[in-house]
Amino acid sequence: MKAKRLALLGLLTTIALIIFVVELRIPNIAPVPGMKLGLANIVTVYAVYHCTAKETALILFTRIILGSLFGGNMLALLYSLGGGIMCLLGMLLLRKVIDEKHIWVCSVLGAVLHNIGQIIVAAAVMQTAAVITYLPFLLVSGCVAGLLTGLCAQLLTSRINLNDF
């Protein structure tokens, strides 16, 4: 990997981390575990369309692991990873069937997959199916949040081209 490319990926990861840490300060609106805006995923969605699969995975996993460390909640790491992996695989596949003008659709579906991944991990860790009751509430908030982050990524994509750097 070229040093320039590495620096760019580092920059993207840092931006995602900063958004993540700032978002930690936003209080939860609903008492549903795992429900959040996920603004840091603006960077993930952007990377899905502008970086290779490997680069996107590097950005996402570095952000999740360092984010959990900074947030001081290592218990949340498993849930984030479960959701992150589902979301990443899904979006990398969707990238092939959804064009760049419809990034927001990809983002919404990515958020849905993230929620499903979170619930699967929660059900496995807690050894109970009770957590599935939370899924529809996560899905509704996930769709809205995914739309928001997707539109943000859409705005960025027409303005910033990584190859210009």
Binding site: V97, H102, V105, L109, T133, L135, P136, L139, V140
Partner: peptide, 26 residues
Amino acid sequence: MKNAKLWIIVAAVIFIAAIVWCVIII
């Protein structure tokens, strides 16, 4: 062919289904 419309419909169906599911639970 990239068919974004199909995926918009998929996303909309998931969203509506999730709302209905929420209402059932509540």
